[in-house]
Amino acid sequence: MLNQLRLIRVVSILSSSPRSINIAAPSISINKLPSNIRPTRSQLLMGSSSYTTSSHSSKLLFRQLFEKESSTYTYLLADVSHPDKPALLVDPVDKTADRDFALVKELGLKLIYAINTHVHADHVTGTGLIKTKDPSVKSVISKSSNAKADLFVEPGDKIYFGDLFLEVRATPGHTVGCVTYVTGEGPDQPQPRMAFTGDALLIRGCGRTDFQVSCLVEVQRCFTSLCIHRQDTNKFIFTLPKDTFVYPAHDYKGFTVSTVGEEMVYNPRLTKDLETFKGIMENLKLAYPKMMDMAVPANMVCGLQDVDGIAKAC
């Protein structure tokens, strides 16, 4: 049964470094390729357009896709150097699940994961619908979200697709279960790195923090999960290299990509001290999300459903 699947945690007993967890599908083998096979900076920038092609001489195929009603970005990543061309989707939306799945097939990819950065309040995830089209696809979400999924990730885990991987970083605040997925560090991984931040870090902003039981606590968690430099760098986005690309789950002004360096300088909220940040977040006076009452309950279960029950659940 899908709900009985467990992550296989691979912990090296020969190293004191953070644990490395491979949740790649068992059929996907790891084949090392020359370190010089990677996308260029310009290729990654071009990938910010929904259907701009990436060079197939590069390991990483990348697409940024948009759902206009909720202004949501969905991201498609694949290791096209691998024989199986394994792929994953980050933050799929139900309304565009058909489009995204068709694109995967057109590009000859094998979709192995549909992952969410958090339990969304403004749209229903497309993960469940995608699983009806291909039940072998595994749904992924953070363990701390308390939602259902095939696989649960925690900070420090690595999600492999072919020879490439995403590292999981905890970025709570918008919700308790928010995580950011960051492309891997190493000579055989794409450079510059890419951070898929969900609603935690937006371009020149950040996600609202009034969804939690204690708003004040979550405001502080949001700030520290993004900004504060400590030894536990797994938690903090601003400890990534400054040229790391920032790809959020939403944008409402037409921006498609930023960098860690830009946000450290120009983000009007996160360039402030903690007390000023608290004041900003406590006085946003944002309207109640119109989709929240439907989206949140659906998203708590849509990461994992049986095929027959998915229509009712979503």
Score class of each variant (00 low, 15 high):
residue 174 H to W: 12
residue 145 S to D: 04
residue 94 D to P: 00
residue 216 L to A: 15
residue 197 T to H: 10
residue 192 P to H: 14
residue 134 D to T: 00
residue 98 D to K: 07
residue 161 F to Q: 09
residue 190 P to E: 02
residue 179 V to M: 09
residue 106 E to I: 08
residue 87 A to F: 05
residue 218 E to W: 07
residue 128 G to I: 13
residue 182 V to D: 01
residue 215 C to M: 14
residue 94 D to N: 15
residue 81 S to P: 08
residue 200 A to S: 15
residue 220 Q to S: 12
residue 164 L to E: 09
residue 219 V to T: 08
residue 203 I to H: 07
residue 222 C to P: 01
residue 208 R to S: 15
residue 183 T to M: 09
residue 184 G to K: 06
residue 115 I to L: 15
residue 96 T to A: 09
residue 209 T to K: 08
residue 97 A to R: 11
residue 121 A to C: 00
residue 90 V to T: 03
residue 177 G to C: 12
residue 163 D to G: 15
residue 118 H to P: 02
residue 212 Q to S: 11
residue 165 F to E: 02
residue 166 L to G: 01
residue 167 E to R: 13
residue 92 P to C: 06
residue 148 K to C: 11
residue 151 L to K: 02
residue 190 P to K: 03
residue 163 D to Q: 15
residue 111 L to D: 04
residue 210 D to Q: 12
residue 146 N to D: 06
residue 117 T to K: 06
residue 195 A to T: 10
residue 204 R to P: 00
residue 152 F to T: 05
residue 192 P to E: 09
residue 221 R to K: 15
residue 125 T to N: 00
residue 178 C to W: 01
residue 217 V to T: 15
residue 199 D to R: 04
residue 214 S to F: 07
residue 210 D to M: 02
residue 126 G to D: 03
residue 176 V to L: 14
residue 201 L to S: 11
residue 139 S to W: 02
residue 194 M to E: 07
residue 106 E to D: 14
residue 198 G to V: 00
residue 173 G to R: 04
residue 172 P to C: 13
residue 194 M to W: 03
residue 177 G to Y: 08
residue 202 L to S: 11
residue 213 V to T: 15
residue 172 P to A: 09
residue 137 V to I: 13
residue 118 H to Q: 10
residue 163 D to Y: 00
residue 95 K to C: 04
residue 125 T to W: 06
residue 214 S to H: 14
residue 187 P to T: 13
residue 160 Y to I: 00
residue 133 K to V: 02
residue 219 V to N: 13
residue 98 D to I: 12
residue 145 S to Q: 00
residue 190 P to W: 06
residue 221 R to T: 09
residue 163 D to W: 01
residue 136 S to P: 05
residue 88 L to I: 13
residue 199 D to Q: 12
residue 81 S to G: 12
residue 151 L to Y: 15
residue 152 F to C: 00
residue 148 K to Y: 11
residue 213 V to A: 15
residue 83 P to D: 11
residue 106 E to H: 07
residue 89 L to V: 14
residue 135 P to S: 13
residue 109 L to Y: 04
